[in-house]
Design a protein around this nucleic acid. Structure first.
Lengths: 193, 193
DNA sequence: TGTACATCAGTGAACGCGCGTTCACTGATGTAC
DNA sequence: TGTACATCAGTGAACGCGCGTTCACTGATGTAC
């Protein structure tokens, strides 16, 4: 089947429809996975949240595993855009270690909501997440404590590790007071300028 | 059925047998869970690793969920023993942020191997893990940086959060160099005396 | 403009497999007398 | 000491359910002429 400029124009509407459905599937999956984990979410649920029936799934993705890798890639922070200003590291840390972030799991940081399971995931999934790790380290390195770039990068890695660990503990613990203490104690000790 | 001192003595062997089997089930479960996560491990596998068949499981635990909570409790660090010397915090951190710990998942720290999934677990599971969190914070507080106890405790929380986050990232990332960098950078920045 | 045909995203019933859980049974050990 | 019975941890077949995946079909949209 060939496509002329004419054919393209006519197909455009349904192609956009498909692209939008695909985006909705990925977004629904990313939310559900964060809320309940990869294994506890079913393909049928994701499709229902995206407004479709489960049978259509395999027109979009070859398997649930492929959806996991794609949804994570899609939800990860995008490559830095020169046009947009970088978010200040202190702002990022304040938001990250907030009760709001702790309780908003559906839109939370992927590393603190799915980190331990993702480490056992497919090569594709881990590769996607590795890119996300690199970007975040680069982002935080700019304003981390230290004189030389090496020191800044080291501090950025330590600071982000602490944010992730603290968020996981804050969500895990069944004592609200301890949970808040973990967040604030970690915030106070972050090596960010 | 009454138990006399005589009856007790006669029953002792089989009671010890049962207790040992129970321990083996818990130990096998704790290893498998760390390696593959709660959902990916089957009751039958745990029993096989413990040297029994799956049918015997329900003589020991009422459900898989109960096993999860018990196995985690069993694998968590015990209450501090006055008789035994505390492990120095620097030692603990060196071991924690080592490649050895990263690669030995079967016996790894529960928070870095199951943290994100446990946060979505049963109340029993979360309660058990909360006790583990308290103990570790107390343990590390003794030698953390700071003059007043409050400062030491704050530093201990931040240091442990960083260890957990760093271990999760080090396991997740598919680049050996970056993985090691995360461990060493975090180790260098830990607020431990 | 109208009619017949092609395409293809989406539907929902069905399949097959695996896993948590149950249960009738076994066999080793201990008890009664 | 011997015989009959009770107990109970463990066995393995079976059940039932849910989930990932497949597939024949629908119906809306576009194409050919």
């Amino acid at each position: 089947m060939e496509s002329s400029w004419f054919g393209d124009a006519h197909m455009k509407v349904s192609r956009e429809q498909v692209a939008e459905h695909r985006t909705r599937i990925l977004a629904a999956a990313a939310c559900l996975f964060r809320l309940r984990g990869f294994d506890e979410v079913t393909v049928a649920e994701v499709m229902k949240d995206a407004g479709l029936t489960h049978g259509a799934f395999y027109g979009y993705f070859p398997s649930k595993e492929a959806l996991i890798a794609e949804a994570i890639r899609h939800a990860l922070p995008p490559a830095p855009d020169e046009a947009k200003p970088r978010r200040p590291a202190a702002d990022y840390a304040d938001g990250y270690l907030s009760v709001r972030h702790r309780d908003n799991r559906a839109t939370s940081c992927l590393f603190s909501s799915l980190g331990t399971e993702a480490a056992r995931g497919s090569a594709e999934l881990r590769h996607g997440m590795t890119e996300g790790v690199r970007r975040r380290i680069d982002h935080l390195s700019v304003e981390a404590e230290g004189d030389k770039p090496v020191d800044k990068r080291r501090a950025a890695i330590a600071a982000w590790s602490a944010m992730i660990g603290a968020m996981i503990l804050a969500r895990l613990v069944d004592d609200e007071k301890l949970s808040k203490e973990i967040l604030s104690a970690t915030r106070a000790s972050l090596p960010l300028a």
